[in-house]
Every structure is written in C-alpha cells, then in structure tokens.
Design a protein around this nucleic acid. Structure first.
Length: 290
DNA sequence: AGCAGCGTCCGGCCGC
DNA sequence: TGCGGCCGGACGCTG
C-alpha cells in the first residue's frame, strides 16, 4: 500500500532516471485496452488509450516530483508544458528496465499495463496488480480539481495550522480522529498504516471524536505523524505486500511498525483489537489507546 | 453549495 | 480445488 513515504522513495529514484529523457512510444496492455473499450476507466483516466498513446509520444520529461501520494511528471513538447500524474492505488509500481522481461518478480511482470519506451533506449514500466492506479495526462494541474483540494505537504510549515483549522470545521469536528487524519484534504499522504502507527504512539483511540482531543494533543499528533512519515522515508517505506522501489526492492519500515498488522500490543502485550472506521480496518490496543 | 452514501476501478487471499 | 465474500485510495455520481 503505497503512502507518502513509498511514493517519496520511488520519486527520488525515478527523478534522476527520467529527467531529460524523451518518450518515444507508449504501449498499453490488451487488458486495459479491453476494459477501456467496455467503457471503464481502467488506469488511464480522462482519455482514450489511443489519445493517451498519441499525446504521450515525444514528451520530454522535465521534472519528477511527489505531491501527496501522487507522482507528478512535468513534461513538455514543442515548448508546451503539460503534467502527467501517476497514483499507485494499492499495487502500482514503476520499474526502470531495458526489457520488460527484466521486471524480476512474476506477479509484477504479468500485470504490466503501460510501457514507456524512451528515445535513448530503456523502458519505464508501470505495473499494477489490482489496477486501482491512475495515469492522467493534463495540460494544467487545475484541469483536475481534486488535485487543488489536497492539503499542503506535511513537511511544509503551514501544514500544521491547516490541519488544526480543518479539525475545527463542522465537517470534521465530530468524526473519528483516524478518519480525519487519513483524509487527504486534511493531511497529505497519511494512509492507514501511518495513521494507525501515529495514533498508537499518541495513545489515542482511533475512534475518538476529533473535538474530544485538546489542541495541544492535536499538535503533538501532527508532529508524530510527520516524524513517522520521515522515519519511513528513511527506512525505504513499508512493504506490506506489494510495494517495490524502482529497482524492485521492498522497504524495511514494515519491521518497525508497532501496531499496524500486529496481533499483540508491544507495550502491554494484550491482544490488539480491530474495528471498521470509515470502511477501513483499524488496529489498536484498547488498553493503551483511549 | 456542500455533503453523505454508494458505486467504481480489480486480483489476491481467506474460509468453507 | 473451487468459489463466494471481502478488502481498499480516492474519485464520480446521485439525492
């Protein structure tokens, strides 16, 4: 499950690999082409596969950055700047290889859906086992309004005040804190894994109403979230099942997780509990978290 | 206008 | 071994 740290790790490798190169040709898997022909929005969003292939051809990759859990490829052709966004969904992965057979693991190799053949040889390959990912070629970021609604980057100075202000809005104040911190319009890039970890570290029950947490504790919580995201970036991200970096290697943060996926609380050793919050499984310790 | 609720993109995995 | 049910980021649509 790629969250901010996993996307960050990928972008750090992808940027030097991709910047300055030109896309010569794009190929799309038959399974995505068939899905799109049936009227579905499989991976390639907002345009036909033919249009996508056509418009991608000849684009120079000028920059690659992370924004929340998205990869932004700044591209241009004939002096015209455009933006390719990539979201990895649950199982998306990018690989830089010379041939598609070089994608090492079969489970990724057999779900390759988009291949960018670069002008100087070599491939940038997008694989997505469950096809929940997204590729969208835009003229401007503003052409896809949800992107403008994302919270600031958590490492930016204004992010904490933005978070605090959100928690006081009628829309959020009464909701479970876990639902609020996982909302990309409140904090960018914090998914189930890191929300679970931060709440455990803070000893806050995931279902606690947001307005029943003091401002001081909310500030502390935000700091803890940022620290955990940073710790995970440093550890190469979490590989719970399907995250791989550009070279196909897993991260190591999964070995450092205290609560996510745990059966037993590392603090008091009692059995962990789980409940559904906003449709997602939330693991917590009912003794340590209140 | 804004929001809650639900459908949508799917394969993997679990339990029977 | 087969198969139905469940899971999940984040959007789009509807009422």
């Amino acid at each position: 499950m790629p969250e901010l740290p996993e996307v960050e790790g990928l972008v750090r490798e992808l940027a030097p690999e991709a910047i300055g190169r030109v896309i010569e040709e794009v190929s799309i898997s038959p399974i995505v082409i068939e899905s799109k022909e049936r009227g579905r929005e499989a991976i390639i969003k907002g345009m036909s596969t033919e249009q996508f292939k056509q418009e991608m051809k000849g684009l120079l990759i000028v920059d690659v950055i992370r924004r929340s859990k998205y990869i932004y490829f700044h591209v241009e052709k004939d002096g015209e700047k455009r933006l390719l966004i990539s979201h990895l969904g649950m199982t998306g992965a990018w690989f830089a290889v010379n041939r598609v057979e070089d994608v090492f693991e079969e489970k990724f190799r057999k779900h390759i859906h988009v291949v960018l053949k670069m002008k100087d040889g070599g491939l940038l390959v997008y694989s997505d086992i469950r096809r929940f990912g997204e590729l969208r070629l835009l003229n401007l970021e503003a052409d896809h309004p949800p992107l403008l609604k994302m919270a600031p980057e958590p490492f930016e100075e204004e992010a904490m005040d933005y978070f605090l202000a959100c928690t006081m809005k009628p829309k959020y104040e009464n909701k479970p804190i876990k639902e609020v911190i996982m909302d990309g319009q409140v904090i960018s890039g914090c998914g189930n894994i890191y929300a679970t970890e931060a709440l455990f570290k803070m000893k806050i029950h995931p279902n606690r109403a947001t307005n029943r947490i003091s401002e001081a504790r909310k500030k502390e919580l935000f700091v803890v979230i940022v620290e955990i995201l940073q710790e995970s970036i440093d550890a190469g991200g979490s590989t719970i099942s399907d995250y791989r970096n550009l070279s196909g290697e897993p991260g190591t943060m999964q070995d450092r997780l205290q609560m996510y996926g745990q059966k037993q609380c590392p603090q008091c050793e009692s059995e962990t509990k789980r409940m559904q919050i906003d449709g997602r499984t939330s693991v917590y310790c009912s003794k340590c978290q209140r």
